[in-house]
Structure formats: C-alpha cells, structure tokens
C-alpha cells in the first residue's frame, strides 16, 4: 500500500471511530432497529471511504456522512417495499409490559409508523438540527417539500401519540 493510501486510511479510521456511535443512534431513529442501524452505518462508512478524497477536500465530512446515511435508509426502504412488504409490518411491535417506560415506547412506535421520508425529515430537522435548506439538499427535494413533510410528519406524530397513549392507558 502506498503512503498516500495509508494516510487516507488513517484519516478515515480516525473519523469513523469517533463518529460511528453517533451515526448509529441517528440510524436507529430512522429504522428503529439496532441491527439494521449497524448495517446502515457500515454501508454509510463504506460509501464514505470510497469517496474519502473528494469528501475531505469539500470539508463537511460529518454532513456528508449523515446525508449518505439518510439516503441509504430511504433507498433500502424503497427497495424492500418494492420486493417484500411494508416496514411497519417488519419492525417488531413494542412490548408494553409493566416494567417498560410506556410513553417512550409509544413515541418510538409512533415514529416507526410514520412514512420513512417523513421520519427522515424529522430526524434531520430536529435531531441533527439541520436547516430546511440542508435537509432539502440531503434528501434531494425542494425546501417546500421539506416544510410540508415536516409539518405533516409532526401532525401525524401528534395524532399517533395521542391514539397510542389512549390505547395503552385503556389496557
């Protein structure tokens, strides 16, 4: 391996080791499953390494990694939906045993019931704290779409949380 390649790998490893936990948590918010989240992070880092030279030159490596993560999640979901069945049926329903913190599970369950695009918009806007413009660029949509999807996503989330909380309290 040449020196340039070694430097490239060392730089990438430093970045990946520092950021993989954060990326995994973002991935979990998107897909709701730790194993899937792990796979998503691995694919993201692989794509990032393949484009490392260009990405480093551009400067915003962190933003680029999150963009890849979100796009990969949406692409995978689209492919899976086309081939198999909806993700809402694939994800495990939350167990609402007496020992579990129910409201949190209600929140998680409501988030997982949102369409993936809405979920991605909410995660980027309110978890990653990205602007409308940054989110639009990452998802390759217009700023108007981001605004409408985040408004609809939030309204739907509110509805779902209300319904699920009511359902849980009745049990």
């Amino acid at each position: 391996m040449c020196v340039r390649e070694e430097v490239r790998e060392r730089e990438f490893r430093a970045f990946a080791e520092a950021r993989q936990a954060q990326l995994r948590r973002s991935a979990y918010l998107l897909c709701g499953d730790w194993h899937q989240a792990q796979d998503l992070v691995q694919i993201t880092l692989m794509k990032l390494y393949a484009a490392w030279g260009r990405v480093r030159k551009d400067g915003n490596v962190d933003g680029y990694a999150r963009t890849i993560l979100t796009r990969t999640f949406i692409d995978q979901h689209r492919r899976r939906r086309w081939r198999e069945e909806p993700l809402t049926e694939l994800t495990d329903p939350p167990s609402t045993g007496p020992e579990t913190p129910e409201l949190r599970l209600v929140m998680r369950s409501a988030l997982m019931r949102l369409p993936p695009r809405y979920r991605a918009v909410l995660v980027l806007r309110y978890w990653e704290d990205w602007s409308v413009e940054q989110t639009a660029e990452a998802l390759r949509v217009s700023t108007g779409t981001v605004k409408s999807q985040s408004a609809r996503g939030l309204a739907r989330l509110r509805e779902l949380v209300g319904d699920l909380a009511e359902e849980t309290s009745r049990r």
């Binding site: 790998e9 990438f12 490893r13 990946a16 080791e17 993989q20 792990q38 992070v41 691995q42 880092l45 692989m46 794509k47 990032l48 390494y49 393949a50 490392w52």
Partner: peptide, 9 residues
C-alpha cells in the same frame, strides 16, 4: 464496523 467499511470501500 470500521474494518469492514474500509475493506468494502
């Protein structure tokens, strides 16, 4: 996942 990512990348 870093090793696997480096190899795959």
């Amino acid at each position: 996942v870093v090793d696997a990512a480096v190899a795959g990348g």
